[in-house]
Write a protein that binds this DNA or RNA. Structure first.
Lengths: 113, 113
DNA sequence: CTGGATCCCTCAGGATACTG
DNA sequence: CAGTATCCTGAGGGATCCAG
């Protein structure tokens, strides 16, 4: 979040990992659709660049939320899945989806900046 | 989140509002401490600049999550509180805090980028 | 297919000074 | 007290090309 994720506050630390662009959405997609391959994620997240997708996956892997499994085949088969720790976000993700859909149904729209 | 918050996906739309730097933390602070004045928020969120705090408050107000009340006194008294819609995030905020504290107690630390 | 490597560029966000 | 008004920087992110 702020400086180098060396915040003293647990909430800030967690948010620091999850609040990058696409990050929360990426996690949400994985919660909704289960383990996915790189290409599949690109299709599930229209508009994300390979660079950013790679960065996010690496960072979430380093955070212990994501598992990267590479099959030694040609062409390579790489699958990303949530670790047990990643799965602990399940309730949060569900809650997020619930609120989002409810507000959407109520006609709520964010400001147009 | 991505372009101009004109995403088709409800989840993306909600995240677009909440995912700016400090934003989620600001909401969390308001949930934890109740209505606060500008100066109090600055103290509760060490490191945030007046500019960014102002921006976030304005954007959340425009989103209907926050209420801004100004007393016509001198010096001015401005209080920010969560609207009913903002309060609907309560469960999410609590869940966030729970996970953050638990992981923290487990010794979890984000990667040092 | 799954990325790594580059280049480029915008703009979010920080710092500072000033005002009603 | 509660903000505006500027200026400026850097890093986040897009596009493209290349490689194992």
């Amino acid at each position: 979040m702020n400086e180098k994720n060396v915040s003293c506050c647990p909430v800030e630390r967690l948010l620091g990992v999850v609040s990058g662009q696409w990050t929360a959405y990426l996690l949400w997609v994985l919660h909704q659709n289960g383990p996915q391959r790189f290409g599949a994620l690109q299709k599930l997240i229209p508009g994300i660049s390979t660079k950013v997708l790679t960065e996010r996956l690496r960072m979430l892997e380093a955070s212990g939320l994501l598992l990267r499994e590479q099959a030694a085949t040609i062409p390579p088969q790489v699958t990303y899945s949530l670790t047990p720790r990643g799965l602990e976000l399940r309730a949060l993700m569900d809650g997020l989806g619930d609120v989002a859909r409810r507000w959407d149904a109520e006609g709520w729209r964010p400001p147009v900046r």
